[in-house]
Every structure is written in C-alpha cells, then in structure tokens.
C-alpha cells in the first residue's frame, strides 16, 4: 500500500513541477518582452516617439488614474461593451428562437441572414451614427450588431441539431411546439449558447472600440484616436494596455459564469 502512496505523491509532485515550469516560462516571456521594449526605446533602436516605452506608459497611466480621467473613459467603454454584449447575446438567442418556431419564417429570412452575416458590421458605423446620433446609443448598437447575427446563426443551427427523438417523446405526450422548445430544444442547446458568450465578449469589444473611433468624446477608443491625432503614442499604448486587461478580465468572468451554469443546469 505504501508503494501506491509514494507513486501518487510522486505523480502529484510532477504535476506541480510542470505547472511551475509553465508559469516561469510565461513570466519570462512577459518580462523579456517588456525589458526588450524598454531597452530598445532607451537605446533608440526603435523610435520612442512612436513606440513609447513601458516606463512612460506606466507613468502616464499612473497620472491619469490619479486625476481620475482614465477611470471615466474606462467605465464608459466598459459599460458600452457589457451592454452591447448582453443585448447581442440575448437578441441573437431570441431571433434564433423565432426562426426555429416557424420553418417558413426561417426560410424567408435565410438570404437576409446570409447577407448580414457576410457583411462587415463595422462598415455600417456611419449609417448607425446618422440614424441614432453621436452618443452611447450608436456605440452600444455597434457592439450589439457585431455579435447578434453570428449568435443567431450559431444558436439556430444548434437548435436544429437537437436529436429529433426528444421531440418525438414529448409529442407522444401531446406537447405543443412551445413545450418542445422549453423542455428539450433550449436546454439541449444551452452549452452552445454559453460557449457563444465567450465569442461575443471579443466581438463586442471590436464593435464598441470601432464605434468610439468613429464618434465619441469619451472612452478608450476615443483615447486611442485622440492620442493618434496629437501624436501622443504613449496615450495610445496605455489605452491598449487597459483594453487588453479589461477584455481578459471579462473573458475570465464569462468563463466563471460558464462553469457555474454548466454545474447548475447539468
């Protein structure tokens, strides 16, 4: 028995060691990237005016957080993205459900969905701004538009892939179409919908940042464009760093929600 125990501890130790190796490599890459950037900027290997440097970015971020200006921009963009993400996902699921509910409706809508899906949604930006005015509404709409069509198509095809025998069982009890949806089709598709959440996080960021590029007086997208126009690339880089951190955080949170949902709906 003792032998089994030792084998197991050896296995666990090995796992731990592997994790440590991976983590140290990850840190090594990060640190060498930052230091290489810093050194090349200091030594004028790259133009510090264009590519800035980690210390400048840190200082600039520090300053902007102290006077609170970064926080306003950050919260505006975050608010727009989260809203665009939620509306896009829920909207996509609702449209997919209505397509599922009527075969004829889905066949009528098919060519339109194909065109809308193939179309780069950000190209609609100017029209949206003209229609909805330069403000939150336009930008949230952009965040929503980028994710809604692909959500619709993915969820709809997942609805159709549900084993028809589940519906057969329900129909043998005299279930209505709505009961079939509620009892079989929707719960069976839930994993697809949840994994769609992760895709949509990224998509909504695209929509919102592009929206802010086009029109806005606030937000991280605005900061990037403003920094570009006044040739303050430290500001551009700082905004990019913040976007990267926020997007990664949002992704992680959605991943948590996903795990929780899967555990609780089984």
């Amino acid at each position: 028995m003792k032998n089994d125990e030792t084998l197991f501890t050896a296995y666990q130790k090995n796992l731990k060691r592997e994790r440590k190796i991976i983590l140290s490599w990850q840190l090594l890459i990060l640190i060498s990237f930052i230091s290489l950037w810093e050194v090349s900027s200091k030594m004028y290997w790259i133009d510090p005016l264009l590519f800035s440097s980690p210390t400048r970015i840190t200082l600039s971020l520090f300053e902007r957080f102290i006077n609170g200006s970064m926080f306003t921009h950050l919260s505006v963009t975050l608010f727009e993205t989260i809203l665009g993400f939620i509306i896009g996902t829920i909207g996509g699921v609702i449209i997919a459900s209505s397509l599922w509910s009527s075969n004829r409706f889905s066949r009528i809508m098919d060519p339109y969905l194909v065109v809308l899906n193939a179309m780069p949604k950000v190209a609609l930006g100017p029209i949206i701004i003209v229609a909805l005015g330069p403000g939150y509404l336009s930008i949230i709409t952009m965040g929503f538009l980028v994710s809604v069509i692909i959500t619709t198509l993915t969820v709809y095809s997942a609805f159709n892939e549900v084993d028809p025998n589940y519906e057969k069982v329900l129909k043998s009890f005299g279930a209505t179409k709505w009961q079939c949806f509620k009892e079989a089709v929707f719960p069976a598709t839930l994993p697809t919908i949840i994994s769609m959440l992760k895709v949509n996080v990224g998509l909504s960021w695209v929509g919102v940042i592009v929206g802010e590029y086009l029109v806005s007086k606030q937000g991280l997208g605005y900061l990037i464009i403003y920094g570009f126009q006044v040739f303050d690339f430290t500001l551009v880089m700082s905004s990019l760093v913040i976007i990267a951190i926020l997007a990664a955080m949002m992704y992680k949170i959605v991943e948590r929600i996903e795990r929780w949902l899967i555990k609780n709906t089984k």
Binding site: Y166, S172, F173
Partner: peptide, 28 residues
C-alpha cells in the same frame, strides 16, 4: 391514449430520473 417507447431511452440528460419519469404529467 398512447404511450410510446422508443428504441433508445431518450431520457433528458439534464433532468433527474424523477423529473424524467414525470415528464408526461408535466406536459399534460
């Protein structure tokens, strides 16, 4: 009037055994 039993069980994997058994009453 009809009870239908298929080749495979087609129990709903996200429902417990009891809720699976109670599917008929729930629908009707």
């Amino acid at each position: 009037a009809i009870g239908y039993m298929l080749q495979q069980d087609y129990l709903f994997p996200w429902k417990t055994i009891l809720s699976n058994a109670l599917l008929g009453p729930k629908i009707t």
